[in-house]
Write a protein that binds this DNA or RNA. Structure first.
Lengths: 169, 169
DNA sequence: CGCTAACAAGACACTTCTGTCAAGTATTAT
DNA sequence: ATAATACTTGACAGAAGTGTCTTGTTAGCG
């Protein structure tokens, strides 16, 4: 499968959700889970690791939660990807060959060198702010948390539940 | 990790090796293993699955082995990739999001649609023949089996052993 | 102080990928 | 027929990804 891990997608979703202006400063993992559909226990692990990477901050106990460590326009998808997948998330060889180098290349080496650059710069260019703007203009999935729909007369109830919890596959 | 599985790289290496004109029609898994450095037992499984996909043929018993089912210029890396990884080896969403579609896209959706096309057509364009020619012109890793070096006065001995068997990692 | 809210952390489970090992089966040579 | 050869098949094992569950730890409230 030529794609990033599902966990990276989860992380982008989660941080987009946390940037939502209708949230308070500290957002609960539970809220993010309900907003995005990411399993809460697993989300907690992801968020915890993102704390370790310095992208977000955590506060324990009553009225705790998570918050972005920097403004959303200073967090790129590339930042998130590297935080989740590590530095070598974009390998030198498309075919996964260990000893594929400039000297001893595979036939897709030159092609993939260019593509790698394209992909990396696209992910660097796309910040959480861009994600939010994209969401406003096109109605995407990301960050579509508490924005529209309900006037929200009962703020106690955690409302928006987009997925059923049981997701067989 | 944004790359194809190691097994796909193995398969491309192995089939390139099998196209080598100095081999007889039926090439032993053992020879391919020694030529490419792929663990033999694992290689056997890969080759067996490629038989099931119709890319190569197998012959058991004395003087058996494997051979390409079609001429090398009619086997593309895309064919091999799909045989190894299945049809959905290039997912619609770069971030691995399940419900990312044209209607409900992620911010990298349009970008990735274009890139996907580039990658797929590159892999379709690159046949085993192209691999062989690439090897001749640039001295790549692939298919670099028994081509040069020895005049090969003792054809009984399986000669070229490029890697030590023990490969700790 | 004691209660509750919320994150932290570890154990465990399931699947896939990668890889090894051994036994089985088919083909050819002699 | 028998032996040698070489693919076939299944069991097993370790690592990584994806989750779940339970217990521990911290922060604030009354």
């Amino acid at each position: 499968m030529l794609c990033l891990s599902q966990t990276t997608g989860y992380a982008v979703l989660a941080l987009s959700c946390m940037d939502n202006p209708c949230n308070g400063k500290w957002v609960l993992a539970k809220e993010v889970s309900e907003c995005t559909g990411i399993p809460q226990a697993y989300l907690s692990k992801i968020l915890h690791s993102l704390v370790g990477s310095g992208l977000i901050q955590a506060k324990r106990g009553y009225r705790g939660g998570f918050t972005l460590a920097r403004p959303a326009d200073q967090i790129s998808i590339l930042d998130i990807t590297e935080a989740v997948e590590g530095e070598s998330w974009l390998p030198r060889c498309l075919l996964g060959l260990v000893d594929c180098s400039q000297l001893r290349a595979c036939p897709t080496h030159d092609f993939w060198s260019i593509e790698r650059g394209n992909i990396e710069s696209e992910l660097r260019r796309t910040t959480l702010s861009v994600v939010a703007e994209f969401e406003r203009s096109r109605g995407t999935r990301m960050g579509a948390c508490c924005d529209t729909e309900e006037p929200d007369s009962t703020p106690n109830k955690p409302g928006v539940k987009r997925r059923s919890k049981a997701k067989p596959r």
